[in-house]
Design a protein around this nucleic acid. Structure first.
Length: 211
DNA sequence: ATGACGATTTACT
DNA sequence: GTAAATCGTCATA
């Protein structure tokens, strides 16, 4: 008998078909799974998520019904990935919530590395510094985790319900008592929306992005 | 055609 | 704490 390989089962469409706040909380504690071209599995436990509430949300790229080539994936059905490039060098990954043509989503801000940690370290290694990154530096930020998991715009629009290379798995989410709600990071431009508690993370987890 | 700006990270003072 | 890196995207013209 071949050695036992951990097998992950992608969550179905119904899991994603809810408002972004509910989805954000449901995502905490689940496993984000990335399968590389060579078959290697990278995964991490989702520990920090932000909700973006669509056309009314001043912090969202879809504010005021903005619909462009770049943000088109936000308008796809729940369970699709929206990957965008920002600051001229970073990628961020969102998971679309709700339903078709309702552009709401959850930004994955941090995961706790589980499988493929050395590969993540390799992906994250800077040519400049020979310093070895700690585990808590691998995926503790939205652009860190996309780098660690090799997620870029090629995965924009991927359907996580059907994809073999990027999906969410896991039976359990974090208990309500262990969830902290706080203002979102990096959205100072968003007026009143900048202060709303739409960032959710697991209490006390050292892998979250902001101490 | 042009200019301003990031849902960030890293290095440096 | 402050600032550089770095460029695709979007609004304006």
């Amino acid at each position: 008998m071949p050695s036992a390989v951990m097998r992950h089962r992608p969550l179905g469409r119904k899991f994603y078909r809810r408002d972004p706040v509910a989805l954000a909380q449901a995502l905490l504690g689940r496993l984000l799974v990335r399968v590389l071209n060579d078959g290697q599995v990278l995964s991490g436990r989702i520990v920090e998520v932000e909700a973006y509430l669509g056309v009314a949300d001043q912090a969202a790229q879809t504010f005021n019904e903005r619909h462009t080539e770049r943000n088109h994936s936000m308008y796809l059905d729940a369970g699709h990935a929206y990957v965008y490039f920002t600051y001229g060098m970073h990628h961020c990954v969102n998971i679309v919530s709700d339903r078709l043509d309702v552009p709401t989503a959850c930004l994955i801000r941090a995961i706790e590395p589980v499988e493929g940690i050395e590969a993540m370290r390799h992906h994250r290694a800077r040519k400049k510094s020979a310093r070895v990154l700690r585990d808590t530096d691998l995926c503790s930020g939205p652009a860190k985790l996309t780098q660690a998991l090799a997620i870029d715009r090629e995965l924009d629009g991927a359907d996580l319900v059907r994809s073999d290379v990027l999906f969410v798995a896991g039976r359990h989410s974090v208990s309500q008592e262990a969830v902290v709600a706080a203002p979102r990071v990096g959205v100072a431009y968003a007026g009143a929306w900048a202060h709303k508690p739409l960032r959710f993370y697991e209490k006390g987890n050292p892998h979250v992005s902001v101490r």
